[in-house]
Design a protein around this nucleic acid. Structure first.
Lengths: 338, 338
DNA sequence: CTGTTAGCGCGTTCAA
DNA sequence: TTGAACGCGCTAACAG
């Protein structure tokens, strides 16, 4: 039924070990190697990775755990991870946690029992535990968000700095009452971006922003819509909105569009970019997250760990870029990469 | 180092076989089962799937091969596949073929040697061969596009019907000279959508459309931009454009926006939807593809095959829905699903 | 450089 | 119902 190295060995007139060596790039006399290759070809031999993995207790699979695979931000990140991984012979197992810590733990359990070579994880919450992986020695790298309390490598964007700068742009454009639509408190990036918004306003006005201007919802389009409606229904509604991610921004835009108060009537800073299409004509300002670079860095850090790198947990913060038609590109806390 | 069923067996005072039985839901006396469970818990035992897989020569992994993981259409499809798979205890290995047949074959080789339980594939070309999988008995289901010459299940959308209907909408809106921006000839959907466009025009005018109105480019935003520029540079430029997928549509919109001739000045039918945001206010007409349902169906068909279903290759064609603010939703060749 | 041998951890016979 | 023993296909030792 299944062609094994024994079949190939028999046909090529060598030992199974030699066949194994040929397929693992270990020195073998050229003529024997050729005989093996030919026998394998004729028999349609394909090495069985499960046997290999069991024997070496290794694996060439990286588990990528993201909260929302339908979000272009994570999609781009995943693509970058896949490119780096593939170049080194690794495959990517995709795990969509749906921002759900329970589901996340289930996936972690699967990953650990697989066992995968490593895990790249966007934690669904600030209380995510990576113990399951740690105790089995499976390396983990966090990306986009930290997992406080777990000593693992992390690579994130400068969310606070970016949010401060983004909010300032709105202030400099003349908007005076800036609402903030952010994600759930459980999520670090939601927290950091709201913090940046608050600090920028404190710095500009000398006082804490009106708490009713801050809305916390799930990171969804519907959430963005709802929050915007609530902000607009305020006795004293905002004249601009800082939206903390791309899906929230989309919801905000939909409602502003319905009401006929798109930018520049109402100011909008879309943190984390927007799904393609038509930004400039709308006068929307955008804070770009380095999704691809986050993915690349995370993958490289993980591969280093898989290769055995033994240094204390590293924490990398990547800069954020703001685009504003009026002012061109602004770089916040770092360099633009090619 | 690694906790095995032998360790658990020793601690629980039973045989390894009994431990195995407990973890596979095979009848064991309740007290022994409990002892095993407790011992496993205390030792932090996690079953080794590689050993299990080698022994049973099975796997709980589905390979999902898509041409562009950054395209929301495939992302939604992937999400649907993952949901169905997960519910049945399967994980998804993500393979981004990048519309590249060579890369596709490489991935197929990896998938087959893994070996995965099955493959869901969006063929990168009409000449894609699935022989590698077929000869090893790994079930394959094609989704979105067929793989002619390979006897496998497929579930696709009604591209020709949808393109005919979509083009007709433009004609009915009064546009007279309709350009078509489609993908490479190697791709079935690009071909079918161009065919639909051609037929609708033939039906309406009684003659074949001017060949210079058809542009074939890669399925990218840049491709859409380039094609649009070329169409607009024609001696007699079109007054409307049929764009064959979401990325092409995005490119078309960018150029129309630059030139200040957005809809309704220039008509636009965006086949396959657009990335979120702001459709209605722009007067863009949209043909929606049932991405989620395609993914769900494909996953279910594959799981049936994995379970051993032995019937001739099935071919399912899903209807397509057109939205037009003027006329509401139209259903092409099928039913809207809840 | 090559062949022989011995497991990796598990599921599954077969007897008991 | 349970335990002992075998082997899934492969690679890592070792001896030659």
């Amino acid at each position: 039924m299944m062609v094994t190295i024994y079949d190939v060995a028999a046909k090529a007139g060598v030992s199974p070990a030699t066949v194994s060596r040929v397929f693992n790039g270990i020195k073998v006399t050229p003529e024997r190697a050729e005989a093996v290759r030919q026998a394998a070809e004729e028999l349609g031999f394909v090495p069985n990775r499960n046997a290999r993995r069991l024997r070496t207790s290794s694996s060439e699979i990286i588990a990528m755990m993201v909260p929302d695979i339908e979000n272009p931000f994570f999609t781009v990140m995943t693509r970058a991870v896949e490119d780096v991984a593939r170049a080194q012979g690794y495959s990517v197992m995709l795990c969509n946690t749906d921002e759900d810590p329970t589901r996340e733990q289930e996936y972690l359990r699967v990953a650990v029992s697989d066992p995968v070579a490593g895990v790249i994880m966007v934690p669904s919450s600030r209380t995510t535990s990576l113990q399951l992986a740690q105790e089995r020695g499976v390396p983990v790298v966090c990306v986009d968000r930290h997992a406080p309390g777990n000593a693992v490598d992390a690579v994130v964007a400068d969310n606070i700095g970016g949010a401060i700068a983004g909010t300032k742009i709105l202030l400099e454009s003349g908007y005076r009452r800036i609402g903030c639509v952010s994600g759930p408190e459980r999520v670090e990036t939601a927290e950091d971006r709201a913090t940046g918004w608050r600090r920028a306003i404190e710095e500009a006005t000398g006082s804490t922003p009106d708490p009713s201007l801050l809305k916390r919802v799930e990171f969804t389009i519907a959430g963005g819509e709802q929050a915007t409606r609530e902000l607009l229904a305020l006795p004293e509604p905002p004249d601009a909105i800082f939206a903390a991610n791309n899906k929230l921004s989309t919801g905000v835009i939909r409602v502003l569009s319905e009401r006929g108060i798109l930018p520049p009537t109402t100011g909008l800073m879309a943190f984390g970019g927007l799904p393609l299409v038509l930004l400039a004509p709308l006068g929307i300002k955008v804070t770009h997250l380095p999704a691809r670079e986050l993915g690349r860095r995370a993958a490289n850090m993980l591969l280093e760990r898989i290769a055995g790198l033994d240094v204390p947990a590293r924490d990398i913060v990547l800069p954020v870029v703001i685009s504003d038609e009026a002012e061109g590109l602004m770089l916040i806390d770092g360099h633009v990469e090619a």
